[in-house]
Simulated assay, not measured.
Amino acid sequence: MSESKLVAEKRTQFGKGAARKIRRADKIPAVMYGHGTEPVHITLPGHETMMALKQANALLTIEIDGKEELALAKDIQRDAIKPVIEHVDLVVVKRGEKVTVDVPVHVEGEAAAETVVTVDSQVLQLEVEATNIPENVIVSVEGVEAGTQIHASQVELPRGAVLLTDPEVLVVNVTAQVTAEALEAELAEAEAEAGIEHEEPEAPAEGEAAPAEGEAAAEGEQA
């Protein structure tokens, strides 16, 4: 994994007003803590921080007054509407230390024809070295037939990683593609169970011929 270096500044003003002022200056308020140290309130450069945090579990080198600390983003608060980070909680880590992280699942390959691949677990929780966090775990479905289920215990993990997620958790499920006929039959069965009935088109009176399509259209225009 790659490391990103961010030069931070200590902050002495707090509260909503101070936070808004920081954001207007294209910076992000943050707090860094861990390893028995007192929390340090800092500001981070806005653009550089947003780019660094695009990657899940990004390892950050935070420089404060010439001193560097390694940290992971523990919590990222984002604006509900704007693409803006409002606040970041950082936890200090050490090289060689083991950390617990949620790593995204990435599916590769093409399953057998007429199948549907569903990812039931988007992430797996792993214990890994802080300086060796994988960007994702890869699950191959190349040529996999319908009916195949891949559980957490079957996922190949990066070297040195330990699975913390329940081994029986379903990660990927491969099922047969539903045909249009099967879908219609399922819909009809559901409607029957719900008591939904469709009215049959009225038959023409005795001796009266059904109007041709063109005649029916003409009558509609006249009306």
Rank of each mutant, 00 (worst) to 15 (best):
A223S: 15
L164E: 02
Q77D: 10
V99R: 02
A130D: 05
P167Y: 11
V139Y: 00
A192E: 06
S121C: 08
V141S: 02
A209E: 15
G143R: 00
I81Y: 08
R78L: 13
V84F: 12
P134I: 02
L126M: 05
H35C: 03
E145Y: 09
D65H: 03
A205E: 11
L70H: 07
N173F: 07
V137C: 01
I133L: 05
A30D: 08
A161I: 03
Q177P: 11
A73P: 04
K82L: 14
A180G: 07
L170N: 08
E142W: 00
E110S: 12
V141Y: 00
V116M: 06
I22R: 00
K94D: 13
I138R: 10
L90S: 06
E202D: 14
P204Y: 07
V155H: 06
V88G: 06
E181Y: 09
L6Y: 02
V139S: 02
V7I: 13
A194K: 06
D166K: 12
V178R: 14
T61V: 11
G34D: 03
Q154L: 08
E219R: 14
L6A: 07
A216V: 12
G34M: 00
Q77F: 10
M1Y: 08
V103F: 05
G214P: 11
R159W: 05
L157H: 07
E213D: 14
A71S: 01
Q122Y: 13
L163C: 05
R95S: 14
N57T: 01
G147T: 04
T118L: 10
E38K: 09
A56F: 01
T61R: 14
P134V: 00
E181F: 04
N173C: 09
H87P: 03
P134R: 06
I138P: 06
Q177V: 11
H106A: 13
A185R: 15
V91S: 09
E9R: 11
G96P: 04
A19W: 07
E108W: 06
L183I: 11
E129G: 14
Q125M: 09
A161H: 02
L187Y: 09
E202L: 13
I28T: 05
E145T: 05
E68Y: 02
K21G: 09
L187G: 09
P167N: 10
Y33D: 01
E68A: 10
V116G: 01
L6R: 04
K10C: 13
G195A: 03
E142V: 00
L126S: 04
L183Q: 15
A18V: 07
L170I: 12
Q77Y: 07
H151Q: 14
P211I: 09
I64S: 03
A176K: 12
L90I: 08
F14N: 03
K54G: 12
E186D: 15
A73T: 01
Q177M: 12
H41F: 08
E200G: 00
E219V: 14
L126F: 06
L187C: 08
K21R: 15
P211E: 10
L6E: 04
E191K: 11
G160R: 04
P211M: 12
V99S: 04
A25G: 05
G160T: 04
R24F: 06
G195R: 04
T12S: 15
V31G: 03
L53E: 05
A58M: 01
L124E: 01
I64F: 01
T12R: 12
R24S: 07
D75N: 11
V172T: 02
